[in-house]
C-alpha cells in the first residue's frame, strides 16, 4: 500500500511534545477576561485566553457563520482559534472540533477549565457543549 511519511506525528512523539501540558486549569470563579458570563463556552483568537472572543451558550456549528471576533475588527473566524474556556453552569464539557458540524479531531474542556488548542491551533471550525451539539 502506498503510504506517505508521517513526519509530524513521528517528530511530535519523539520530542515528547504530545503531552497533557496544553490544559490550563483556572481557579473556581476565575473565568478569564471576556468570559465572565456564566453558561458561556468561550473561544479565543489567541492562546492564553487572549485576542478576540466568540462565546456561545450551546453551539457554533460552523465558525464561518460568525461575522467577526468580538472586541476586534478581525473577520477571519474559521480556522483561527487558539484557546478556549468552559464557564458553563452544568457539569458538561465543551468540545471544539477541527471541522464544521462537529467532525474531525476535537479538544475538550471541563467546567471551569480551559486549554490552548495545541494540535488544533488555527483549525477550529465548530464547537458545542456536550449534549448541545445539534
Amino acid at each position: 500500500m502506498a503510504r506517505s511519511s508521517r513526519p509530524i506525528l513521528s517528530a511530535l512523539i519523539a520530542l515528547g511534545i504530545l503531552s497533557s501540558s496544553v490544559i490550563m486549569a483556572a481557579p473556581a470563579s476565575a473565568a478569564p477576561s471576556g468570559c465572565s458570563t456564566r453558561g458561556h463556552g468561550c473561544t479565543y483568537e489567541d492562546s492564553g485566553y487572549r485576542g478576540g472572543r466568540i462565546n456561545f451558550y450551546e453551539y457554533v456549528r460552523n465558525f464561518k457563520d460568525v461575522w467577526q471576533w468580538g472586541g476586534t475588527n478581525h473577520f477571519l473566524t474559521n480556522d483561527s482559534a487558539s484557546s478556549g474556556f468552559n464557564n458553563g453552569t452544568t457539569n458538561r464539557v465543551v468540545k471544539w472540533f477541527d471541522d464544521a458540524n462537529y467532525q474531525g479531531p476535537r479538544k475538550t474542556a471541563e467546567p471551569q477549565r480551559g486549554l490552548n488548542f495545541g494540535t488544533s491551533n488555527d483549525k477550529i471550525s465548530s464547537a458545542c457543549f456536550e449534549g448541545y451539539c445539534k
Binding site: S4, I8, L9, S20, R106, T108
Partner: peptide
C-alpha cells in the same frame, strides 16, 4: 489519558 489521546488522535487524523 483524555488529554493525551485527544492530541494523538488529532495528529493521526491529519496524517
Amino acid at each position: 489519558s483524555y488529554e493525551l489521546a485527544e492530541q494523538l488522535a488529532g495528529v493521526a487524523y491529519g496524517d
